[in-house]
């Protein structure tokens, strides 16, 4: 009986080890990764079917706001351009909006604020698993899009950022027009009624409330309206997407 138990235990351990090693091999193979990635399209379609595109993320009360809104990723972009803008209190900052638009624009923070304003207290869910609640004030992206007039070919909005990763890879993100025109999708310039701190993305960051934190690009430099993001970065629609994360970050 002990022999049989030993045999069973060893067999199970060996099987488990081999299975885990097999999983690692699948993770590192192109085909394996591609098969696993196919789930993203299912998630996107099912979630969009079950949760209508106009549905609003829950908004919270002032009393729910996190004592500290945890900054993540870059907390101080070190590029000379950003540093000089920061020294000038962002008075020289202009957000470039171009690409497939009728009227490309370079907008100062004051001009942006004049386009419209929305304040919302929402929960920010990081891909790592943590959540923080903050009060964001900003210009609805829809108002900016109306200002520049996307052409008929426009499908995505790409956000180019001041911060870089891995020495010189610029951070960027992208969302589709549907998400871009969602009423809670903001170019936020204030957190908890104060100008956006550098650690949280000053002077301007994206809020795209129904997706995970890495979609909420910080340190916005330029907004580009495109038909496809295949030629940007490594072609997956964002810095983290180029590193294996989902473009659709609804879960």
């Amino acid at each position: 009986m002990t022999d049989r138990r030993h045999f069973l235990r060893n067999t199970l351990l060996a099987l488990g080890g081999a299975t885990l090693a097999g999983c690692d091999r699948i993770s590192e193979s192109d085909t394996g990764a591609r098969v696993l990635e196919s789930a993203e399209a299912v998630t996107r379609r099912v979630q969009r079917f079950l949760s209508p595109s106009r549905a609003l993320a829950k908004e919270y009360a002032e009393s729910d706001i996190s004592p500290v809104f945890k900054p993540n990723g870059t907390t101080m972009p070190d590029t000379p351009l950003y540093q000089s803008l920061l020294r000038g209190g962002f008075s020289d900052y202009r957000l470039e909006v171009d690409g497939l638009v009728a009227r490309p624009a370079r907008l100062s923070l004051e001009e942006l604020k004049a386009l419209g304003s929305r304040t919302q207290i929402t929960r920010h869910d990081c891909v790592e698993g943590w959540s923080a609640i903050g009060k964001w004030t900003g210009t609805p992206l829809a108002a900016v899009l109306d200002h520049v007039g996307p052409t008929d070919a426009a499908r995505y909005v790409v956000f180019h950022c001041f911060d870089t990763y891995d020495e010189d890879t610029p951070y960027y993100e992208s969302i589709d027009l549907d998400e871009a025109r969602h009423p809670q999708t903001l170019l936020a310039h204030a957190l908890n009624s104060k100008p956006l701190p550098v650690a949280n993305g000053a002077p301007l960051r994206l809020r795209v409330e129904r997706q995970l934190g890495y979609k909420h690009a910080k340190y916005l430099r330029r907004i580009e309206v495109v038909a496809s993001f295949a030629d940007i970065g490594e072609g997956n629609g964002g810095y983290w997407e180029d590193n294996g994360y989902e473009w659709y970050a609804g879960i």
Partner: peptide
């Protein structure tokens, strides 16, 4: 698991 999804929370809060 679904309750952790920010997109689904819009309808499942």
């Amino acid at each position: 698991g679904i309750a952790m999804s920010p997109r689904m929370d819009a309808v499942l809060h």
